[in-house]
Design a protein around this nucleic acid. Structure first.
Length: 749
DNA sequence: GAGCACTGC
């Protein structure tokens, strides 16, 4: 362990007290930001306290990071330029060190010297923002939340004294909505820019505008790949700096011929490595839960069948929806040899893309990369996002192979030919902005004051049809007027961290006297699958991980029947949205009791998380004076009003039951099927749905029964029959309009 | 009667 530790200096490295204590008093480094006081001891300029011993210990380690070699050069380039592109591979230390260099090299006092401005450093993931800021606070010898802080959804850990703030890219975008020129910042560091998240891409365009209006603002774009040259071109030829990384060499192997069945090939490769290669753990990349569970069973079986001529193995699956206790297993050590002097044991992790960026496992020496991943694609014509197994990019393949070289030299087996790598793989994964429904993004851009989307300087402009679709949806929702300007409704909607349909439903809900219930349903739909969690071995290797719980219903393999029965007890005959409301109410009535949750096959953490989201939504409602109200629970209209309010947001996500027994989506006329997870005991003529999922069939999931009359009452502008394709639904609606007309005539008489 | 790549506000 000792020698390994010396070779490895990672971002999360734990300072080994014994190895550095001997040289800690060396005063070759007056630390960054230090000054002498009268007693000749060094004072931390950020909090006015003398530096601790630990500060010097860490400083020694920091100085050995590759990025320190270019510290002076960086500061000079920063001084002379408004924008810098910095390329640094894994292990260069850029995420922790660059923002500290910036603090040292830039004057953050306001011109009147009355307060200090901040340095921001964005991260695509919350856990990174949290853990990196903690580490940096330690390095700077200050308290987290004071001089160094972080800001993520649900948690602002910063203060008026904060000079360096790590935050998610989405959070900086939120801040821009109230502070369009980002005036609290002196320098913005966009980290992991190569990941091209939706938020990063919007920030690119926005910052380009802001920089023109704020000559004093500086931008550092940090990226891990050569796409940096593209960034350079985008930012008017900003200077580019390269920082070497610190990874062990990884030898790459390709197959001679293309593999017909990558799953079979992956399993075969695992077995071969286990038989022929020296000890070291294996990481296999596959595409999804089912495939991974299947592969784990097969690998275990094949190796068990080989008897004691090979060492024992521990095969562990890894995907985001895996229960935390199971995820924990990836950190367990490889099993010992079955008998003394026998062949060594090995850990084999079979994972989705989660192990590519979000989670790091130490001890991996062999990586198997079949070259596929599930990726989101968006089809604007039918307005559907779906997941598709597709070939990965060269950049992604590179990232995967790097996972083999974290602790020692490693090997990566690519299950495709070298020719295929060179000729078939795209250089980069398509940025998310080209693969998503942009309704929410367009709403954000409008709120940020970007009126002319067609001429907005996207680094990669989305398809015009995708933008048109987004504008159309927002216009139907009343968020944009016919000239594309943000309406008062749009202003409100943009403040909610939700899809526009859901925001609209919330803003309209007081009119139906059921905002309390709509808040609960929204929270259950949007917050039921987000939960932060720390894994046990975190203090050792510095890994946090976010665990995703896709829905609040638990269905363990060994108790599926009992779980289904428990779920049925919450079932509401009118639909899944109301079932979710029942669950939420029951949870609150039972005082949020974890053991009640356990007994009822409901995920406690998922509900806690939904409750957290609900509180945030309540605060936003209060800001707009949207009242919190409920109908009398015993009134006949209690559920009717909730369903009507839902329609006020989701009138574009409706399906009609045809006489053939099939559902067709309204206007788009797509054949869809009710997802079997639904709790309806009948097939309603009209349903609203929360999502459209494209898997083995076209499913609509989370559905609720609505009435045709409500469609024409609540959304007549959308159900305008002069602009409606010929279909059965149209004929039904025509009858309903005629009926309404008659009623009106009768009322006049 | 089926399934869920990964993030973020």
């Amino acid at each position: 362990m000792g020698t390994e530790r010396k070779r490895k200096v990672s971002l999360f490295d734990v300072v080994d007290e014994t190895s550095v204590s001997a040289k800690l008093v060396k005063t070759n480094g007056v630390g960054p930001g230090a000054m002498m006081n009268n007693n000749n001891s060094l004072i931390n300029r950020w909090n006015g306290k003398p530096y601790s011993q630990r500060y010097y210990e860490i400083l020694e380690k920091r100085k050995s990071l590759p990025v320190w070699q270019q510290k002076e050069e960086f500061l000079q380039v920063l001084k002379a330029n408004q924008v810098i592109i910095l390329v640094g591979e894994t292990g260069s230390g850029k995420t922790t060190q660059i923002p500290q260099f910036v603090l040292e090299g830039v004057d953050i006092e306001t011109p009147d010297r009355r307060r200090k401005m901040m340095i921001a450093c964005t991260q695509p993931r919350r856990v990174a923002a949290m853990s990196v800021s903690r580490r940096v606070a330690e390095e700077m010898d200050v308290t987290i939340g004071e001089e160094v802080g972080y800001s993520i959804r649900f948690e602002d850990c910063s203060s008026a004294r904060t000079v360096l703030k790590y935050l998610t890219d989405g959070m900086l975008l939120r801040e821009a909505m109230t502070d369009p020129l980002l005036e609290r910042y002196k320098v913005i560091v966009l980290d992991e820019a190569h990941e091209r998240t939706l938020a990063t891409d919007v920030l690119f365009g926005l910052l380009k505008e802001v920089l023109k209006n704020r000559p004093d603002l500086k931008l550092v774009v940090m990226s891990a790949t050569l796409e940096a040259e593209k960034f350079q071109g985008y930012f008017y030829g900003a200077p580019l700096m390269k920082v070497p990384g610190r990874l062990h060499p990884v030898e790459i192997f390709y197959t001679q011929d293309p593999e017909r069945d990558y799953l079979e090939a992956a399993i075969r490769t695992v077995v071969q490595i286990h038989m022929c290669e020296p000890s070291g753990d294996i990481l296999v990349f596959l595409t999804g839960e089912e495939e991974i569970e299947d592969a784990c069973r097969k690998i275990t079986k094949e190796i068990t069948n080989m008897g004691d001529q090979v060492g024992p193995v521990k095969v562990v699956p890894l995907y985001s929806t895996l229960p935390p206790a199971m995820q924990q297993k990836i950190f367990e050590p490889a099993p010992p040899p079955s008998k003394e002097g026998g062949p060594p044991g090995r850990k084999i992790v079979v994972s989705t893309n989660i192990a590519e960026t979000s989670l790091t496992i130490d001890g991996i020496v062999y990586v198997i990369d079949p070259g596929f991943a599930k990726q989101k694609v968006y089809n604007p014509r039918v307005r559907v996002e779906s997941l598709l197994v597709s070939p990965i990019s060269k950049a992604s393949a590179h990232q995967r192979s790097g996972r083999a070289g974290r602790t020692q030299p490693g090997k990566c087996f690519r299950l495709y030919t070298e020719k295929s790598f060179n000729n078939d793989l795209q250089p980069q994964t398509y940025p998310e902005i080209l693969r998503s429904n942009l309704a929410n993004t367009v709403l954000t851009l409008k709120k940020l004051g970007i009126d002319d989307l067609v001429h907005f300087d996207f680094m990669d402009p989305p398809a015009p049809e995708t933008l048109m679709r987004a504008l159309e949806v927002l216009n139907y929702l009343g968020a944009l007027d016919d000239d594309g300007n943000l309406t008062e409704m749009g202003e409100k909607m943009s403040e909610f961290p939700l899809d526009p349909q859901m925001s609209k439903m919330l803003v309209e809900s007081p009119k139906y006297n059921c905002s309390n219930e709509i808040l609960s349903i929204s929270a259950m739909l949007s917050g039921c699958h987000q939960q932060l969690s720390c894994l046990g071995s975190m203090p050792l290797v510095g890994m946090h991980h976010r665990i995703l719980i896709p829905n609040c219903f638990v269905r363990p393999r060994e108790a599926q029947k009992a779980a289904d029965e428990a779920k049925a007890r919450f079932g509401h005959i009118d639909g899944d949205h109301l079932t979710l409301l029942n669950v939420y109410h029951a949870y609150k009535q039972n005082n949020e009791d974890p053991s009640w949750c356990y007994d009822n096959f409901v995920n406690h953490r998922a509900l806690k998380s939904a409750d957290n989201v609900r509180q945030q939504l309540v605060r936003i409602m209060a800001r707009f004076n949207l009242k919190l109200c409920s109908n009398d629970f015993n009134s006949r209209d209690y559920y009717v009003n909730i369903r009507k309010a839902m329609l006020a947001g989701y009138f574009m996500q409706v399906a009609h039951l045809e006489r053939t027994g099939q559902y067709l989506t309204v206007k788009d006329n797509q054949v869809v099927h009710l997802h079997p997870s639904n709790c309806l005991d009948h097939k309603p003529e009209w349903v609203i749905y929360n999502e459209y999922v494209l898997t083995s069939r076209n499913f609509i999931r989370t559905v609720t029964d609505v009435r045709g009359e409500w469609l024409i009452d609540i959304a007549p502008h959308y159900y305008d029959l002069s602009n409606f394709p010929q279909c059965e639904a149209k004929r039904v609606l025509e009858r309903l309009y005629r009926k309404r007309e008659k009623e009106r005539e009768n009322n006049r008489k």
